[in-house]
């Protein structure tokens, strides 16, 4: 019994890590700019498609048709030669193998530019408007982003293989001194969890230990006073929006081997991550992270057969149910500050 629960706990971690990363970005945007960003899921999806694009480029091949030889089903044999391998040899093969983690290098600048362009281009004009209008315009942007991706990459999910060294499962049970082969866990999920922990830790360290982060935190607490001190807080907040986009994009890149990305990936995650944000408390960064992991773990434990036997269908609705209860009894969320968005 303990093993089952522990396994579900582990299973919840990677999903929870994805929720936490998206919710972290959402909260950064809400806490700094005060904008409810329904396009944040789309940023997650754009990140995932950065990985798809990188892999497409890396696996470009030259196809030469050899009319002499025939393939087993009778057509002329096509000789496919991956360009990267042709140019770089073994190093090229490594590049292709590690395409997903490598995409992060390219994703960071892309998402930074996308985020800053989005903020300067459109969202800037919506600070003074109501939350409803912010929701509407970012919802529209999310539709546009998703349809652009659909028209470029088609409607079907595009599987992304994980690096060969990181396939397979780790025997965590044996590592912790339990019986072997009881608790095994896919290595890539561990990688995802560690990656999320590093990113989350990095964001917190950035806010906590750098001057830039200190100014941003001061701006979150009292934007006007910071502005009166002669600091260009708007520019810093714009950069924070870019940073939130980068976090969402990286989360998307690393999630591709777990879930083949398709164009409505963003919408799927958006609803859940909003729920995560309100459960954690609007504007609370630790709340977003904690609620992300909490809901991920709750979701995977609700899909245990023992639980489903008692409450049929609970695994489908547990997240929303928790959100509804939290919102009704404690509107500022688990970690929300008193008075912030409590209405």
């Amino acid at each position: 019994m303990f093993e089952v629960i522990f396994l579900q706990f582990l299973n919840g971690l990677d999903k929870g890590a994805a929720y936490a990363l998206i919710a972290l970005g959402l909260t950064l945007v809400f806490g700094t700019l005060g904008v409810v960003n329904f396009a944040h899921g789309a940023l997650f999806m754009l990140g995932a498609f950065c990985a798809v694009t990188v892999r497409m480029f890396l696996t470009m091949e030259t196809v030469t048709v050899d009319p002499e030889k025939l393939s087993p089903w009778g057509s002329p044999l096509e000789i496919r030669e991956p360009l990267v391998q042709a140019w770089f040899g073994d190093f090229g093969a490594v590049l292709v193998n590690y395409s997903v983690p490598l995409s992060i290098i390219i994703t960071i600048p892309i998402m930074l530019v996308v985020g800053i362009a989005l903020e300067r281009g459109i969202i800037k004009h919506f600070y003074k408007r109501s939350h409803a209008e912010q929701i509407l315009v970012t919802f529209g942007l999310a539709i546009v982003a998703q349809e652009v991706i659909k028209s470029v990459y088609g409607p079907n999910p595009i599987p992304q293989p994980m690096p060969t060294d990181l396939r397979g499962a780790a025997d965590i049970g044996a590592f912790l001194g339990m019986q072997a082969n009881i608790i095994t866990y896919p290595i890539w999920r561990l990688v995802y969890f560690v990656f999320a922990a590093v990113v989350i830790g990095g964001v917190f360290a950035f806010l906590q230990f750098t001057t830039f982060g200190m100014v941003v935190r001061a701006g979150m607490a009292d934007r006007e006073t910071v502005g009166l001190l002669g600091i260009n807080i708007d520019r810093r907040f714009t950069i924070m929006f870019g940073l939130a986009a980068v976090v969402a994009g990286m989360a998307g890149v690393m999630y591709t081997p777990l879930l083949p990305p398709n164009y409505h990936l963003g919408m799927d995650f958006l609803v859940l991550s909003f729920v995560v944000v309100v459960v954690g408390g609007m504007g609370s960064l630790p709340g977003a992270v904690a609620a992300g992991f909490l809901l991920g773990i709750l979701q995977s434990s609700a899909s245990m057969n023992q639980v489903k036997a008692v409450f049929p269908g609970i695994d489908q609705i547990i997240i929303y149910l928790v959100a509804v209860i939290i919102l009704l009894v404690r509107p500022r969320g688990l970690f929300g500050r008193r008075g912030v968005m409590e209405a």
Binding site: V271, V278, I317, Y320
Partner: peptide, 21 residues
């Protein structure tokens, strides 16, 4: 019981629950 964005998210949550169920 809530207004503004919380109302939107609550309705969203209930609708998604109905859909999933």
């Amino acid at each position: 019981r809530r207004s503004g964005i919380y109302f939107s998210i609550l309705t969203l949550a209930f609708a998604q629950m109905s859909y999933n169920l």
